[in-house]
Amino acid sequence: MANIDQGTHAITLQDVSKWYDDFQVLSDVTLTVDPGEKLVICGPSGSGKSTVVRLLAGLEAHQSGTIRVYGRPVGAQGRGDVGMVFQQFNLFPHLTVLENLMLGPVRAMGTSRRDARDRAMAYLERVRIPEQANKRPGQLSGGQQQRVAIARSLCMDPKLMLFDEPTSALDPEMIAEVLEVMEDLARDGMTMICVTHEMGFARRVADRIAFMDGGQIVEVDTPEVAFSAPKSARFALFLDKILKH
C-alpha cells in the first residue's frame, strides 16, 4: 500500500494491528481524518472500534503499523492535545465539578488557579450546567456528568476530541442533552472521532461513517451513501438491525 502523506491530516493510521495475546483485535487498520472532520465509527461489539480511539488517546499500545496525530506519534502530543470522553464518564468523584475541570489546566499546563477557574466556568456555561460547579459528580445525573466530562476535556484546549460510546451508559431521556453539546462542538469546527450507535447523530453531524467488523474497517462512507446504499452486506445488515427499533 502506498504511504499516506502525513502532513495534511489530523490523524493517520496505517496498517495498524493489535493483539491481546493470541487474539487479534485490529488487523491492518488504515484510516485518515482531516482537521475539522467529524468521523463516526460504528460496528458490532468486539469489532475493535473502541480500541481505535483508545490507541489514539494513548491509552493502549499497538504492535505494528504507524499512528500519527498531527504528524507526530501518539506519545509525542502536547499535554491534553487529545481529549477523550468515556462511556463511564470517569469523573473524579472526590473533587467538585469545578475542581475536575481545573485539575488538568492547573497541574498539567501550569495555568494559574484564577485563569483555570474562569476557563472552567466558561466551559460549564457552554455545556449548560454552570450552576452545578460546586457539586460532586455523584450528585449529578448521568447526562450532566457526561457534559462535565466533555467540558473537562475542552479545558485542555484539545486539537482532537475522541468519544468512546459517550451515550451508551445514559438513560434515554439524557442522551439528547449530551448529543446537543457534541453537535455544538462539531459546529465550532472541532476535529472529532466518535464511536456511537446514535445513527441520528451520525446523519446530522458526521462527514464520514466508518463501519468496523472483526478488527477491520469494512467501509467508510458519507452518511448519504451509508444510509441509502451501503456497499457491503455486513454494513447493510448491521444498519438494518440498529435502525429497526
Binding site: R79, F92, G104, A108, R152, S153
Partner: peptide, 15 residues
C-alpha cells in the same frame, strides 16, 4: 478509568 481520565487531561503518572 480514573487513571485513564487523568492521562487524557495531560497529567503525568505521578500527578
Amino acid at each position: 478509568g480514573q487513571a485513564e481520565a487523568a492521562q487524557t487531561i495531560g497529567l503525568s503518572r505521578a500527578q
